[in-house]
Structures are given as C-alpha cells and as structure tokens.
C-alpha cells in the first residue's frame, strides 16, 4: 500500500494503517529527536509527543508536504520549547568572525578511524560540541548534512530561508570541526 493510501485510511479511523505509519517513522523521529536534544530519555518523550500530535491532527494533513517533513517540524518545535525552558547558554554564531581564521598548519585527520564512533569518549565529545550550538544551527546541520535532506526541505522544517540555511550550515560545520579539532588533535 502506498503512503498516501495509508494516510487516507488512517485519516478515516483505521487503526492498523495508523500503526503502520507510526512504525514506518518511529526510528527516524526518535533519532532526529535524539540528535537535537542529545538525551535518550528526552528523545523518547519527544517522539511520544510527536506521534500524539500526529494522531490528533492527522485529519488536517493535506498531503501538500511530505509526512516526514511534517513530523520533523513537530519534533523541532517540541525540542525548541524544551530547550527554551532550560535557558541554556548557547554559543552565538550569528555574527561570528573568529571561527574561520585559518590555522597555520592543519593536522591530518585522515588517519582517524571512522569506527571511533563506537567509542564512548568520542560520543561524549560529539555531544558536547553540538550541544553548544543553538537549536536552529543544530537542526540545520543535522537535517542537511547528517540526514541528507535538501536545502529547501531543511528550510521548510526550520522556517528559514534558503540563504539562511546555507549560512547556518557553513558556520555550524566549521564550528563543530574546530570544536572537535581542539579535543582530537591533542
């Protein structure tokens, strides 16, 4: 059954189709929520809230955008709300000049093994670095670079224009790269 057929059936109250839709997207939603909030418990909570919203407002879903885009946006809004409550102090990159100053000699990263991701220490470093980014920078980096969405779709989900997505992506990448280089090149 195609996705739009599933959605139509779910909209008319078919629980089996609704469960199918949830199963199809639960992993995507869970991982995106985790990548934004960097906490498994909060990710689960966000995922539950996201699907509760989906169930509640599925009737209003008009199919003009992709269901995944719609879900990403709910996750995004929920995480933003949570992060605002915390009044966490983020690094502002909006008018940054300092991040792109070229270092004189750049160490070689090509020998760093990729399976280093299984390494708990590295995971901590990755969490710490990305947690310094404001949620909009974080979301742009994750949607565009990590999940491979288009610039346009990333803009739709975050409510940013295409040029704003591009400049945030650029700054987020070099910020993260520089944060990691401080730790990994030691």
């Amino acid at each position: 059954m195609s996705e739009s057929e599933l959605i139509k059936k779910a909209q008319s109250g078919d629980k089996k189709s609704l469960a199918e839709l949830v199963k199809k997207y639960e992993n995507t939603v869970y991982n995106f929520a985790f990548k934004i909030c960097r906490d498994p418990e909060k990710a689960e909570n966000t995922m539950q809230e996201t699907f509760l919203s989906m169930v509640k407002s599925l009737k209003q879903f008009d199919g003009k955008s992709k269901l995944s885009t719609w879900l990403y946006r709910i996750v995004m809004n929920h995480c933003l709300m949570e992060l605002r409550k915390k009044k966490y102090k983020f690094v502002s990159l909006d008018d940054d000049e300092n991040e792109n100053t070229a270092e004189t000699v750049i160490p070689d990263w090509s020998s760093l093994p990729s399976d280093i991701v299984e390494n708990i220490e590295l995971r901590k470093i990755l969490d710490k670095a990305i947690s310094k980014l404001t949620p909009d920078y974080r979301a742009v980096f994750i949607l565009r670079d990590v999940n491979g969405l288009s610039t346009e779709e990333t803009g739709k989900i975050t409510g940013l224009s295409v040029p704003a997505v591009k400049s945030r992506l650029h700054r987020a990448r070099s910020f993260l790269r520089n944060e990691l280089s401080r730790t990994l090149e030691k």
Partner: peptide
C-alpha cells in the same frame, strides 16, 4: 587537510545513531 577534517566531522555525526 582542512577539507578532510570537515568531511570527517560530518561522517562522525552521521555514524552516531541510537537504536530504539
């Protein structure tokens, strides 16, 4: 080397997934 390090940064985050 800079280019590689940016690519590697992205790769690290790409491979960092959690299992439900």
């Amino acid at each position: 080397k800079y280019f590689t390090s940016v690519e590697k940064t992205i790769e690290f985050y790409k491979k960092y997934n959690i299992k439900m």
